[in-house]
């Protein structure tokens, strides 16, 4: 029922826009990663693998990447540990207040990302709220300087930021489980534990996967929280990219690292996607 002219007129603009402002830019990262910088700081369009070679030969990059993956993994696990029981509690044991308690978990998502990072900075700092409190209560005499500017601060801040993100899909999965499935399981004599382990948990796996991928990917690529609360020991891979595009001026190397992050993320997403599909087919 739609003519060719109609189809062209609706698709022309979005296709052009997406090609120029999404497709081309991503390709440009790839191209830039094969170029190099001359000794007088000019971008040279010669094609080689020198940036990737640097990534492999200089152990610093591998180390920072590994640290970032470790932080991202920790944040994901912590967020799951916090969000899953809460989602379970809201879906199965809390019928009356469910709706507004749910809203209450979502609400912090609307507090600016930057503001939440900043809040942790004021809490954990050497003359921050927590140290003030500890000294006021005479638990410590000296301010604890290791709280801020550490991987610990990064993990804490990012867990705070991403717990609601993990909660959302897990809750969606749990809330959609028909209650009569649980009744059937109980009637057939299964214990609470067995009902959870054999009925509820398997049905919530897609939610867990979606939530944890989201948290992992976004943490892995984060550069703002590490810069705010991480200090030198909490720097992550994206901070390296930022500095290579700034003061260190080496766009090809920065692009090469960005390509590695991109590749990691896309691989992870497609693996999870395939697994999720397989799981829901069962």
């Amino acid at each position: 029922m739609y003519t060719k002219g109609y189809k062209t007129s609706i698709s022309l603009l979005p296709l052009l826009w997406v090609s120029i402002l999404l497709f081309l830019p991503y390709v440009l990262i790839l191209c830039t990663s094969f170029w190099s910088v001359s000794s007088d700081q000019v971008l040279v369009h010669t094609w080689d693998f020198s940036s990737y070679q640097q990534l492999v030969t200089n152990p610093m990059y591998g180390k920072v990447l590994f640290r970032s993956a470790k932080i991202a993994g920790t944040v994901t696990l912590l967020a799951l540990f916090l969000a899953y029981p809460l989602a379970y509690f809201l879906s199965f044991h809390c019928e009356k207040q469910q709706k507004w308690l749910y809203q209450l978990v979502i609400l912090p998502l609307w507090v600016s990302y930057l503001v939440r990072g900043y809040a942790w900075k004021t809490i954990l700092g050497g003359d921050g709220v927590l140290n003030g409190f500890l000294q006021y209560m005479h638990i410590t005499n000296e301010p604890l300087e290791f709280l801020l500017y550490s991987p610990f601060a990064v993990v804490l801040t990012l867990t705070h930021i991403y717990t609601p993100f993990v909660f959302l899909p897990v809750y969606a999965a749990l809330a959609h489980i028909p209650k009569n499935l649980l009744e059937a399981s109980h009637d057939l004599g299964a214990s609470h534990f067995n009902t959870f382990w054999k009925v509820i948990f398997p049905l919530s796996i897609p939610g867990i996967l979606t939530g944890s991928t989201f948290a992992f990917v976004l943490t892995l690529g984060d550069f703002l929280a590490p810069q705010m609360v991480g200090g030198a020991s909490g720097m992550m891979i994206s901070n390296v990219v930022v500095s290579l595009f700034g003061a260190a001026y080496n766009w090809p190397l920065g692009s090469a690292i960005a390509m590695v992050i991109l590749l990691l993320v896309v691989t992870l997403l497609s693996v999870v996607n395939r697994y999720e599909k397989k799981w829901s087919m069962k």
């Binding site: 979005p14 690529g221 990219v241 692009s255 992050i261």
Partner: peptide
């Protein structure tokens, strides 16, 4: 995929890509 990509990718990648163009 391309339309949805910025939603899933860390902001730094899309930011850099746009900076380059």
């Amino acid at each position: 995929q391309l339309v949805l990509l910025p939603l899933i990718l860390p902001g730094i990648i899309t930011g850099l890509a746009l900076l380059l163009i």
